[in-house]
Amino acid sequence: MTNKKLIVIFTCVFFAFIILAIILSNIQPDERIAVVTVDGKVYKEVDLSVDDTFVVETSKGTNEVRIKDNAIYVEEASCPDKLCVRHGKLNNKYDSIVCLPNKVVIEYKTAPDIDAVVGR
């Protein structure tokens, strides 16, 4: 492969993914219900129209979650990297707040997909 070909390929991939990221980040969920999962199991389902603060307690640590003005974010966490706190608000349908050390995932509720229906 020549230099030119490689540059073209990688530039295309680069912009394709940036465009994809922009498109995906603009899709909003149908209903504003968030699901908090701990280690793959549903911990709590919350309606974002009601302001609330609660603490997710796991075997590894705690995450303080706050719901304010139709948005959900992690206020405080016991983990060392604090990536979930720095992530900020859940801002689109495919977004998720992840705390890897505590295995906590916060995401919007999605309609049950084909797999879930078949599994029933």
């Binding site: 991939v13 680069f14 993914f17 940036i18 994809l20 990221a21 995906l24 999962t37 280690d39 793959g40 495919y94 977004d95 998720s96 992840v98 890897l100 295995k103 995932v105 995401e107």
Partner: peptide, 14 residues
């Protein structure tokens, strides 16, 4: 994590 939503990260990571 048992969730495929993390795939979304790839659009940023790549």
């Amino acid at each position: 994590m048992g969730t495929d939503k993390i795939m979304w990260y790839l659009t940023v990571l790549i």
